[in-house]
Design a binder for these strands. Structure first.
Lengths: 217, 217
DNA sequence: ATTACTAAATTCCGAGTAA
DNA sequence: TTTACTCGGAATTTAGTAA
């Protein structure tokens, strides 16, 4: 595998189209490796066709090749995908059947009172199961406020903490995506608690499309 | 030094904020190295504090740490400097003779309908062959949006995918530079598909100078 | 001052395998 | 199925130098 570190260094110093004159020793001290290694690595990049390279007792002259540039470009595009993505302003999903574990939480007063206090609404007893794309979910969640709902114990059992992300269903109805403590975030199905009985109010049935919006609009 | 390849892979898969569940064997086959090496490298990333990592007999769960994200971010900024610096606002070239392979594509309905849908115009049947400097081409392309045109099969043969980069000819006419799947990008001659018969409209002849502009003006 | 060869030291990798 | 340990061999690095 080509030494991307060094290739990137050359690209930054020389740009895409110009040559760059320096010495292997200078590059070596920049990377805290030996002069010999830089010499070897430069020749390796050249033999792979990633740079044009010539050396003399005066120093080395290096230039990115088209192939080298295209390798770096593809890495740039990858990282751009990570850092420069514009998170969607809403998350579209479809209603799934089933009540989900969440319904049970709604019956626990210690959860409900926290929801009321921290989310600003008292949730309807049922929850919506919402089928979404995992990838879009991650991007959408990253722009939401995260609210911690504490766990507690009753005589019988312990209830774990819950992570809640406030959203607006169809830009209107106060709601929150909830993740019980140990859930992985990797499901295609998320649970949504709502102020009202949205299943009725919006006449939802299985497969209905539902959009969740960020509250920051 | 940390394994940036793997770190980038994790970033692309998991994004900045979510966890990613997979197995060391899957990652291994992606990179063509052994399962053992992936295991070792993941633990190395974790011990350097670049990822949060846990493993079980079910698989591995990985998440980028803040430190890991910042390392990738700095590499992103470096590459941005290289590719997004001062790209030429246009690409000048000269009309070459010949029809090019592209003309044939224009006769394939499955390509044409995709062009129409994704590029926003139905291309004229002919293509322009445009002689340009390879170096300038790379820089110019880097600032353009890239649109994927999918390949397909007919009874007789298969047609590969095409990469298309929307441009404006002479700041006016909707067009796109196209690269058939296996072409190398390293030719001096690129093919341009246009909304109209520019050869007539602009009274072009062989050797005529033509300027392609980025659509983002 | 350079680059880069040779050889020794070091690191890295993966097959085999336990848990 | 998993992960990850051991260990022998492969690959990489660098010190010492020649040119």
């Amino acid at each position: 595998m080509p030494d991307i570190e060094l290739l990137t260094f050359i690209a930054v110093k020389a740009g895409l189209n110009s040559t760059f004159f320096t010495s292997t020793a200078k590059i070596a001290s920049r990377f805290h490796i030996s002069q010999q290694s830089v010499s070897r690595k430069l020749r390796a990049l050249a033999s792979e066709g990633l740079v044009e390279f010539s050396s003399s007792p005066k120093g080395v002259r290096v230039k990115l090749s088209a192939k080298g540039a295209s390798i770096l470009k593809s890495r740039f595009v990858e990282l751009k995908q990570v850092f420069a993505s514009h998170p969607a302003p809403f998350l579209e999903g479809s209603l799934e059947s089933g009540l989900g574990e969440g319904s049970y939480y709604m019956s626990q007063a210690k959860y409900v009172s926290q929801f009321e206090q921290k989310l600003g609404f008292r949730p309807f007893a049922g929850t919506l199961n919402h089928g979404v794309s995992e990838e879009k979910l991650a991007g959408f969640l990253s722009q939401l406020e995260e609210i911690a709902i504490k766990g507690f114990r009753t005589g019988q059992r312990s209830f774990g903490s819950i992570r809640a992300f406030p959203v607006l269903v169809e830009k209107k109805y106060g709601a929150a995506i909830i993740f019980p403590e140990r859930s992985s975030h990797e499901s295609n199905v998320i649970e949504v608690i709502c102020r009202e009985n949205l299943r009725k109010k919006l006449k939802l049935k299985e497969g209905s499309s539902v959009k969740l919006f960020s509250e920051k609009l």
